[in-house]
Design a binder for these strands. Sequence first.
DNA 1: GTCTGTGAAAACATTCACAGCG
DNA 2: CGCTGTGAATGTTTTCACAGAC
Lengths: 222, 222
Amino acid sequence: MDNSAWEIPEVVIRRLPIYARALAFLEEENVAVISSLDLGRRLGVTPAQIRKDLSYFGEFGKQGSGYNVQSLLGEIRRILGLDREWPMALIGVGKLGRAIATYEDFETQGFKLAAAFDVDPNKVGELIGGLRIQHVGELEQTIAEKNIRIAIVAVPGSHGQKTIEVLASCGVAAILNYAPIAVRVPAGVKVRHIDPVVALQSLTYYLKSSAGAKEAAESGEP
Amino acid sequence: MDNSAWEIPEVVIRRLPIYARALAFLEEENVAVISSLDLGRRLGVTPAQIRKDLSYFGEFGKQGSGYNVQSLLGEIRRILGLDREWPMALIGVGKLGRAIATYEDFETQGFKLAAAFDVDPNKVGELIGGLRIQHVGELEQTIAEKNIRIAIVAVPGSHGQKTIEVLASCGVAAILNYAPIAVRVPAGVKVRHIDPVVALQSLTYYLKSSAGAKEAAESGEP
DNA sequence: GTCTGTGAAAACATTCACAGCG
DNA sequence: CGCTGTGAATGTTTTCACAGAC
């Protein structure tokens, strides 16, 4: 494929980080080359899917052998925009917000908490992960100054919708939402939801039937 | 529809908790009846999708008016198996595991932490959320005794695959996985992944293009 | 008139299967 | 040979559109 501008399916975009993680792991293991078959085996995905997904972006493999681990990883990072550091804003510094602020995996992956906000004036000024908590009133200015395009929303459900609208109006276009709500998002803004309760609530459906121990059923996640 | 036994699409099951949450909220607001159109507006979902989803399970609406909020909520809870309390096991009591153990939203939604495990003998005996941390060696016995069918995995990535296999062999059939890995799951076991980094990594794709401020683009999540 | 439940159509996503390169 | 890249086929999910109930 050579398509310059194209609308690539969202499912494909969502799988790329998974491929990237597996490749990073292979790189650590000093594996130089991997075929779509072997990569698929590791991930529980069909090789055809991997090849088709990658074909949206170019031709990265070599017939007869497979993909060079390092260079494919580099390509995927570039495609996803992971070849730089992204500053983020955290909105809501309650219990959950604090846990997020001190969660170190973001930084190691190039996502840097650059500002933290709360409505509660009592929290303003407090330090969290080396960051001074600011009042939400300062949102717009700080986001502009620090060129922030990603926000993590950790406010109570009741404030979620409003928070996301404010963020969108400040130019934030990517939101990781921990508020337990379904939100309507303005055009041009992308949201991902982190919602453990919803995840559990869809799992219980499959438990109702099988009373006690293991029984044969159809697979899990690919 | 009247289909007794049928394989209902997983996407449908995943949406039911969202509907349930919206209905619970409407119930609080003392809304008695809602149409698929209005519910869809709140959730950012098409009314046809709501109707089709529900039709897999029965006929819950009334033509001309819509759905009774209370009774539809009851039906969905029953379908998902949310009309009871589910005991859960937590595996891995590091920083993340502790945050999960003290996260109160699980309990209010009927998911009760009934046991917590870690490999580290130094942690064994420590109390976390009123629970005595046990050694993973006690997994099988405790899970059987307490009739646990759901586990939350919060171990380091390197231990994730093994942990999930052990849990499966103990009869756990539903897993909420926080370990940052793609896992191969035995048949009959369902897994949901909570992975904020992967979520962020797919968001950045959409940021690459638009350099600075807001620009018109295509919608967000439905 | 309003709104559901649902076949039928359309859109979308995955898998197959194979030509062709290394 | 073994493996990629990809049209074509198949499978899945969403949306349309309307008959019929209230």
